[in-house]
Design a binder for these strands. Structure first.
Lengths: 126, 126
DNA sequence: CACATATATTGCAAAATGCAAGTTACTAAT
DNA sequence: ATTAGTAACTTGCATTTTGCAATATATGTG
């Protein structure tokens, strides 16, 4: 199913994972998509203030690695939304584990709540 | 218990976690320590070939954030070992979740096995 | 004394990040 | 018809981090 062989640094699954999402931004984008955000502006407006060039770069890489899918939700003008693939959604246990660790050792942190994004006309949210 | 308030980017536990281990190397060091490695040379000799300046930098940061503890295991000459604190060991579910994701989507990856490090004279390993 | 070992530090080029401004293509308002 | 606004980017440039190789320091060993 996946055909991305030849691992960059080693065949360790952790290493391989970090080669995909081991940076300060990628998992935050995954988090936002998991919470129901879909559009570029939604992602830009998160409280961490990601720079637009970084966001564009990460969205491209996430498509290449198959964690997200980009689709036009309208034409004239073309507007795009980003949705998690199954492979992307499968990162939920990773995010949950990080949240669990964070909440335990930094009790002042607060978990973000899913968007009530009825405007997206989507039946279910993660 | 922790007194590192004033979160860098936001109060999200994921963001806060990524500010600590959101890079390509930190979780690999944690992995190695979890597997029973303790010494600088052990860490240097992992298959990912971390550069010594990066390793030294990460070991310092991991001490500052309280994930590892550095102790001399001998004097003359002073030699040091690095061990996970409880806070560090608590990252095991995060590593396990990453392993789970990696194994599912990259079946050719292989989980590293714990060292049989009797030479460390340590009673138990993670 | 010469050499080896463990734990680093330093120098420097390359890559990634962060910030601000600019671009494109359309819609909406006056 | 001009002006302004919006979404989704792109570009330029300075700063920071990474990666690689070489060097450093203290000690023990032959």
């Amino acid at each position: 199913m996946d055909n991305e062989s030849a691992f960059e640094r080693s065949c360790c699954p952790i290493t391989n994972g970090l080669d995909i999402f081991g940076d300060r931004w990628t998992l935050l984008i995954i988090r936002d998509l998991m919470l129901g955000k879909r559009r570029y502006q939604d992602l830009i407006s998160s409280p961490e203030s990601i720079a637009s060039n970084i966001l564009a770069d990460r969205l491209k890489k996430l498509q290449i690695t198959g964690l997200i899918h980009r689709r036009a939700y309208q034409q004239n003008p073309a507007r795009y939304e980003y949705v998690l693939t199954e492979k992307g959604k499968d990162l939920k246990p990773v995010l949950d584990a990080i949240i669990g660790w964070g909440r335990k050792h930094y009790p002042d942190t607060m978990v973000f709540t899913p968007l009530n994004s009825s405007r997206h006309l989507s039946p279910d949210l993660p």
